[in-house]
Computed example of a mutant assay.
Amino acid sequence: MFRGSMVALVTPMLEDESIDYMSLEKLVEFHIASGTDAIVAVGTTGESATLDMQEHCEVVKFVVDKVNKRIPVIAGTGANSTTEAIELTQCAKEAGADACLLVTPYYNKPTQEGLYLHYKKIAETVDIPQILYNVPGRTACDLLPETVIRLAKIKNIIGIKEATGDISRITQIKAGVSDEFDLYTGDDATAVDFILAGGHGGISVTANVTPKLLHEVYFAALEGDAEKARRLDAPLEGLHRDLFVEANPIPVKWALAEMGLIGHAIRLPMTQLSEKYHAVVRAAMQQAGVV
């Protein structure tokens, strides 16, 4: 359903830690003008873990309303409680989101059968396209290819964001799913190789900072032009690496603040980027041509 560069959008905040809706609207317009192919609202990069239920739903609705169908909006609605994930997914459907992105239940370490039943129940309860999201480095929970293949048989589970950085995963999953099942990377550093191996795009942190160029990178890869994709991606290698010198979204929010797109605020327990990393992230931004 979705192709290309999908930004894992930050949630800008004011110094009192409330949502900065003025800056959020500015970001939406920035991405639409820059050719971003879809916006993912309130995912990991959007500080979903620190927004309460009401804020979560309000941010999704705000982004959907401001985008106004110009590009797709995918709402992050995963939770480690199946009931809460259903509530968030229903909220996103009512807000008019085009699809939902559901991270694996974090912290409680379900079995593969538990993961299957978790996603199955959400999909059967809320009739909206749903994308699985596997990021074991953040969740301590790995959604294995064989479980993905089982889930792909459920009508409204349409794809997966696979963020392990393991390119062999795409081969394993593709072998057991239909051609209609979408494969997105969540690992910026390996995104070009992922798409060249048959992926359909990426849900990206780097896209917050360089949306226009990353759109061009991903579409070159989608067209099978490996040389062009790698050449265009080369200046972004520093960002792919250094936007993770501290836990996401700390570095990317600092970078966007340096670009004048948002303020520096972030919500505890996340903190602002350590001063020792300022020069590191700034150098990566300079390499990418954004400062």
Rank of each mutant, 00 (worst) to 15 (best):
K66V: 13
Y107V: 11
E58L: 04
A75G: 11
K93F: 08
V63D: 06
E55N: 04
Y116D: 01
K66R: 15
T77N: 02
I86S: 05
H118A: 00
D65N: 14
G76E: 09
Q112A: 10
M53L: 14
L101G: 12
A75C: 12
Q54R: 14
K93D: 09
T89I: 03
L101N: 12
K61T: 00
A49G: 08
G114W: 06
Y106D: 12
P105Y: 00
T104A: 13
L115Q: 13
S81V: 13
G78S: 10
T50C: 07
C91V: 05
H118G: 04
E58N: 08
D98H: 11
A92G: 15
C91W: 07
G78A: 03
I71V: 15
I74W: 02
Y106P: 11
T104I: 03
D65Q: 15
M53Y: 10
E58A: 11
G78V: 10
A99S: 14
D52F: 11
Q54V: 10
V73W: 07
C91L: 06
C100A: 15
L117E: 14
G114K: 02
A75K: 02
Q90F: 06
Y106T: 05
C57Q: 12
T83I: 12
L88K: 14
S48N: 11
C100G: 11
D98C: 10
E113S: 11
S48H: 12
A95E: 02
V64T: 04
L88W: 09
C100F: 04
F62C: 09
N80L: 07
G76V: 08
T104N: 07
E94M: 11
D98P: 05
V64F: 01
M53F: 14
N68K: 10
G114H: 06
K93L: 15
F62H: 15
V60R: 01
A95K: 08
V64P: 00
E94H: 10
E58W: 00
A79Y: 06
Y107H: 12
Q54T: 14
R70Y: 04
R70W: 10
V60D: 02
V63T: 12
T111Y: 05
K93S: 06
N108K: 09
Q54P: 00
D65V: 07
N80R: 03
E55C: 09
L115Y: 13
G114A: 07
I74F: 01
P105K: 02
E94L: 04
T104D: 00
D98R: 14
K66M: 03
Q112H: 07
N68Q: 14
S48K: 02
S81C: 07
L88F: 10
E87T: 05
H118E: 03
S48C: 12
E94V: 01
A85C: 14
Q54K: 15
G114C: 07
T89S: 12
